[in-house]
Amino acid sequence: MSVRPAILLAVSLLLATPLRADSDLPPAPLSDTQLADPRQEAAARALMEKIRCLVCQGQSIADSNAELAGDMRALIRQRIAAGDKPSTVQAWLVRRYGSWVSYDPPLDRTTWLLWVAPILLLAAGLVLARRSFRSRRRG
């Protein structure tokens, strides 16, 4: 008898969790506000296009409405307004969140498969296509 209420509570909590994914806090000050200097804003926007949203995973932080993406946009604008170069800010983000946060990850021992896999898949497709065409000619 006491197991049923516990199961209902667990299911209710699991269903309610996505509804509270974002907090009730106001957005970060520079998350949706452009910098006064157009060159700095252009540099910040270009960098935002290169950084992956850690919540959405399929969008850049420039396109994402997630709260974390807004915080990251604000952070990028603050650092660029303070005089940091976009490459310095990107390197800091990669150190903090890992290479996966960048849409252009560096070639190293953890990301080599990301760079080599398209070439291997293309080569495998060419081999399969060649075999298929040869078998059609013979048959």
Results as ranks from 00 to 15, higher is better:
Ile76Gly: 09
Ala81Ser: 12
Ile61Gln: 04
Lys85Val: 09
Arg77Lys: 12
Asp84Trp: 11
Ile76Gln: 07
Ser87Asn: 11
Ser87Lys: 14
Arg79Gln: 15
Met72Ser: 11
Asp71Phe: 07
Ser87Asp: 14
Asp63Trp: 07
Lys85Phe: 11
Asp63His: 09
Asp63Ser: 13
Ile61Cys: 04
Ala81Thr: 02
Gly70His: 06
Gln90Phe: 00
Gly70Tyr: 03
Leu68His: 12
Val89His: 05
Gly83Val: 04
Ser87Glu: 15
Met72Pro: 09
Asn65Gly: 15
Pro86Thr: 08
Gly70Ile: 01
Arg79Glu: 10
Val89Asp: 02
Trp92Tyr: 10
Leu93Asp: 00
Leu93Val: 01
Thr88Ser: 13
Val94Glu: 10
Gly83His: 06
Asp63Gly: 05
Thr88Asp: 11
Ile80Lys: 11
Trp92Ala: 13
Asp84Ile: 03
Ile80Ser: 07
Gln59His: 12
Ser64Thr: 05
Ser60Asp: 09
Gln78Tyr: 10
Ala66Pro: 05
Ala81Gly: 03
Val89Met: 08
Gln78Glu: 15
Ile80Gly: 07
Ala74Thr: 10
Ile80His: 08
Leu93Lys: 00
Arg77Phe: 00
Pro86Leu: 06
Thr88Val: 13
Val94Phe: 01
Pro86Glu: 08
Asp71Arg: 15
Val94Gly: 02
Ala62Glu: 13
Pro86Ser: 06
Ala82Phe: 06
Arg79Asp: 07
Glu67Asn: 03
Asp84Thr: 07
Leu75Trp: 14
Ala74Cys: 14
Gln59Glu: 13
Ile80Val: 10
Val89Lys: 06
Leu68Val: 08
Arg77Gly: 05
Val94Ile: 13
Gly70Arg: 10
Ala62Asp: 12
Ala91Lys: 10
Lys85Trp: 11
Ala69Arg: 07
Met72Ala: 11
Pro86Asn: 08
Gly83Leu: 03
Glu67Ser: 04
Ala69Trp: 08
Leu68Lys: 12
Pro86Arg: 09
Ala82Thr: 04
Ala91Trp: 01
Ala91Phe: 02
Gly70Gln: 07
Ser64Asn: 06
Arg77Ile: 00
Arg73Ala: 00
Arg73Lys: 13
Arg79Pro: 09
Ala81Trp: 05
Asp63Ile: 01
